[in-house]
Design a protein around this nucleic acid. Structure first.
Lengths: 153, 153
DNA sequence: GGCCCAAGCGCAACCGGGTTGCATGAGGGA
DNA sequence: TCCCTCATGCAACCCGGTTGCGCTTGGGCC
């Protein structure tokens, strides 16, 4: 379709994005592939705002993006975390397990949020309760910011 | 002042609320004491909505409540947690330590959120990062709902 | 390759809670 | 009791999430 030069492609869509959509039995549309591309190539979870801005620039409507994200959540293609700033952040779900299977780290200096895929959340046992899932959030300095902070001394 | 019978008291204000305000060097006003009363007598963290509704019923303005909560946060009289529903919940800070020193439990059946004051958050050590604070959220069934769920079987 | 229809999209408008500016009123030290 | 500062209340704004509806399009079927 390629509405505007350099904006919407169909030819060079990321194979991986298309495959994810096919596996989830979802229609392959340009908005969805662009959204998945963004998420697949992001190192860290992206805020709804960041996604909106990037895709609106490409000519997509914010309602469409919003609905695509809802769809992805329903299919557990992505997971969503809420941080202290009350904004949602989205990331591709890598583990088969749905949702909160790993801690999330927020750097107070650069503000980036990182999925700590390799780290297990220590189990807590709570008298009388049935614990079904756990989430853990960490704050501090990421390696890059820590190094810069030390250099500044 | 006692504007309307049964609404705003000055005479019978909770001593504890007044003491908290005095200690924080904040002015003692009817809105603030009512708000603190509510929080002091709540077993669990209350949502901003719950607080607003209770206090608007008493004739206070939502902006005032909003600003009082901001003030309390600044003075660390209360702490605030964000749950998956992206709503804030407020609770009196009991530990001297500011903020997230204990896990929070959300019951998926009754929806209540509970501060687990007595439970420590297991420390996570993260290669290359400096961890400054941690938070943990648990979901499942609280003792009451667990019992009811078992009875229903 | 073309047809058709359910699903996806875009627009416009709504909604509700957080936030701000400003004029008025109240707390509390002098 | 007075007065200054801070708290309050009102109105309005802002912004992101959400919905309804008519148009468009992906993709299965012929």
């Amino acid at each position: 379709m390629q509405r505007v030069a350099g904006k919407r492609f169909t030819g060079e869509r990321d194979k991986q994005a298309v495959e994810i959509l096919r596996n989830a039995k979802l229609r392959v549309t340009s908005c969805r592939t662009s959204l998945l591309d963004l998420l697949l190539h992001a190192k860290d979870p992206l805020t709804q705002k960041e996604l909106m801005e990037a895709l609106e620039e490409q000519g997509f409507n914010r309602v469409t993006i919003y609905r695509a994200l809802q769809t992805f959540l329903d299919s557990t293609i992505v997971h969503r975390i809420v941080t202290e700033d009350r904004t949602w952040r989205f990331a591709i779900t890598h583990c088969g397990h749905r949702g909160h299977c790993h801690p999330h780290f927020t750097c107070r200096r650069c503000g980036r949020v990182r999925c700590l895929d390799g780290v297990a959340i220590p189990a807590v046992d709570l008298e009388g309760h049935r614990i079904e899932s756990q989430a853990m959030y960490l704050w501090g300095l990421c390696p890059a910011c820590l190094q810069e902070a030390e250099l500044a001394l």
